[in-house]
Amino acid sequence: MSLASYAARRVALGLVQVLAVVTLVFLVVQALPGDAAVALAGDNPDPARIAQIRAAMDLDRPAPERFLEWLIALPRLDFGVSLVSGRPVADFLFGGIGPTLLLAALTLALLVPISVLVGVLAALREGSLLDRALTSISVALHSIPEFALAVVLIAVFGVQLTWLPPTAVGADLLAQPAVLVLPLVVLLARPICSISRLVRAGMVDALASDYVRHARRLGLGETRVRFAHALPNALAPAVQQVARTTDWLLGGVIVVEAVFVIPGLGTVLVDAVAARDLPVVQGLAVVFAVTTVTVNLLADLVAFRLAPRAEVVA
């Protein structure tokens, strides 16, 4: 299959996924007990007042009609209006996206080189101390809840040793990079383990393969064999795992933002759920779903390009 036709199929699947998730989110939010009007009426649940709020927010119109309207407005980045503050949902999203993107981008920027480096080093010295230490540590750290790790690190480095600020309250993330150290360490702990292990496994396989033996027989330099021939094939599974970690990363970001008090999308989500601000929750769910699907799509395309023969799940 050529890259173009694979890409076309993959994009079509991605669109269907996004549409399905968006529909699902709308239905789920519809199912929330006591709609927004009841929540807004608060301590004074006067039926006339509730009906009035409903009419003002168009909640009295049939659900399919509202769904279509909401769906058509989405490509224009019009997510509706927050129930609690009356501000457009897009404002919340743009307000929170900065810190979250910064965290995610920094994590990825550190994650990829570090895990590839560690994985390749471990593979080149198979059975060495580094290799064994890497395996043990990555087995142990896999799936530690971020908040537990974060709190322990805060207690040690923020409270006892006072080397680093314990939270990011009121800090400008870019002006004071010290506040980002602990969140990044927490976010990196799990993915570094899983990805460097995959790179290691892929590299060990690749170095033992026929084409590497053939390249050596041709007299190519060892560096070239390792990095131009073995490494791309070893990276293909790791690239897809990087995409899968965006799921983790997102969950991790929600938790890490809560622990370190960073005003990002995760904080917006937690606040919106607590306040029953449904349009905001819907908007966030759309953003998260589109991000996850897009990242997975890109990763599949990169993996396809790196190792076109490999069977890629479409």
Binding site: V21, G251, V273
Partner: peptide
Amino acid sequence: LDVLLAVPSLLVLILVAAIAG
């Protein structure tokens, strides 16, 4: 199931728990 896997698990968790109480 592909759709369910496309949604971040913590988001599913928060959404469903918000509905179900």
